[in-house]
C-alpha cells in the first residue's frame, strides 16, 4: 500500500482470531483526511472487531495499523494514541455517575490535564455543537437514547480526535430517535471530520459516505462510492446482502 499524503488511518493485512473463530482474515484499508467511510456487512463478520482493533481495545494477532505517522500496533503508549481516536459505542457507554457535561469534560481534565474551568467551557461548546447545551447538568439516566448518543459524540469530539470510529451508533435507538443522531453525524462529515462508521443506515451512507465498504467473513468483499456500490455492485454477494437489507428495512428509496 502506498504511503499517500493525507492518509489518517492505514490498515495492512489485519488478522484476529478468538479461539478457533478467525474473525478478521486480512483486512486492509485506508482513510484520508476528511473522508467518511461506511462499513456494512452481515452480523458476525468482524466489523466491530475491526473497529476495536483500530484503537487496540482488542489487540490484533497480526497486521499493522498506522494513525498518521504512528504505528499503533507497535506503540507502547497506546493510551496516547487512543486520545486521537474518538470512539462512539452502540450502547453509548456514557459514564453513569457523571452529568452530560461531566462526561464530555472528564477526558479533558483526567487525560489531557486541562484545568477544570477551561475543560467545562470546551465541554459546553461541544454539547452545544450536538444541540444539547440545555442538558449539560442532566445525568445519563435522565436522557433519551438519542440524547445519550449525542452526548457520547460530544465526548469523542472534545478530545479533538484525528478520527472518530462509530460502532453501529443508531442500532440501539428507537426509530424516531435515529434522525437526530444522524443529523449530528452528517454535520460532522460536512465539517470535514474523518470518520469510519459501522452502520446499515443506507440513506445516511448515500448522502455522506465517500466510500462504502462491504465486509463478509472477515474480509473486505467490495468497496466503492455509494452510488456505484448500491446500484451496480460488482460482486454478487454484495448485491444479495443489499437487497436483503432493503427488504428488511422497508422501502429504502432507490434514488
Amino acid at each position: 500500500m502506498n504511503k499517500e499524503k493525507g492518509s489518517v488511518l492505514r490498515i495492512e493485512d489485519l488478522h484476529k482470531s478468538f479461539g478457533d473463530n478467525h474473525v478478521l482474515r486480512g483486512v486492509s484499508l485506508e482513510i484520508k483526511r476528511g473522508e467518511t467511510k461506511i462499513l456494512i456487512g452481515p452480523s458476525g463478520t468482524g466489523k466491530s472487531t475491526l473497529l476495536t482493533c483500530i484503537n487496540m481495545l482488542t489487540p490484533p494477532d497480526s497486521g499493522k495499523i498506522w494513525l498518521l505517522n504512528d504505528e499503533i500496533t507497535a506503540s507502547r503508549k497506546v493510551n496516547l494514541l487512543r486520545q486521537k481516536i474518538g470512539f462512539v459505542f452502540q450502547d453509548f457507554s456514557l459514564f453513569n455517575h457523571l452529568t452530560a457535561l461531566g462526561n464530555v469534560s472528564i477526558g479533558l481534565t483526567k487525560v489531557k490535564g486541562m484545568d477544570r474551568k477551561k475543560a467545562r467551557e470546551k465541554a459546553m461548546e461541544e454539547l452545544k455543537q450536538v444541540g444539547l447545551g440545555d442538558k449539560a447538568s442532566s445525568y445519563p439516566a435522565q436522557l433519551s437514547g438519542g440524547q445519550k448518543q449525542r452526548v457520547a459524540i460530544a465526548r469523542a469530539l472534545a478530545m479533538d480526535p484525528q478520527l472518530i470510529l462509530f460502532d453501529e451508533p443508531t442500532s440501539a435507538l428507537d426509530p424516531e430517535l435515529i434522525g437526530e443522531v444522524l443529523t449530528v453525524m452528517k454535520k460532522l462529515a460536512n465539517q470535514g471530520m474523518t470518520m469510519l462508521v459501522v452502520s446499515h443506515e443506507m440513506g445516511f451512507a448515500r448522502s455522506v459516505a465517500d466510500e462504502v465498504i462491504f465486509m463478509e467473513g472477515g474480509i473486505i468483499v467490495e468497496q466503492g462510492p455509494p452510488a456505484q456500490l448500491f446500484s451496480n455492485p460488482r460482486v454478487e454477494r454484495t448485491g444479495e446482502f443489499l437487497s436483503r437489507l432493503s427488504s428488511l428495512f422497508g422501502e429504502e428509496d432507490e434514488k
Binding site: 493510551n79 487512543r82 474518538g86 459505542f89 457507554s93 453513569n96 477526558g107 483526567k110 487525560v111 469523542a156
Partner: peptide, 27 residues
Amino acid sequence: IPSGQMQAALSMGMTRWQGIISIIMPQ
C-alpha cells in the same frame, strides 16, 4: 458496572488505573 464503562474510559485515552479510579470506583 457494565464492561462498556471501562472500554469507553480506555478508548478516550485513559490508562486502566485512571479508568478504575475515575470511572469504575465512583460508581
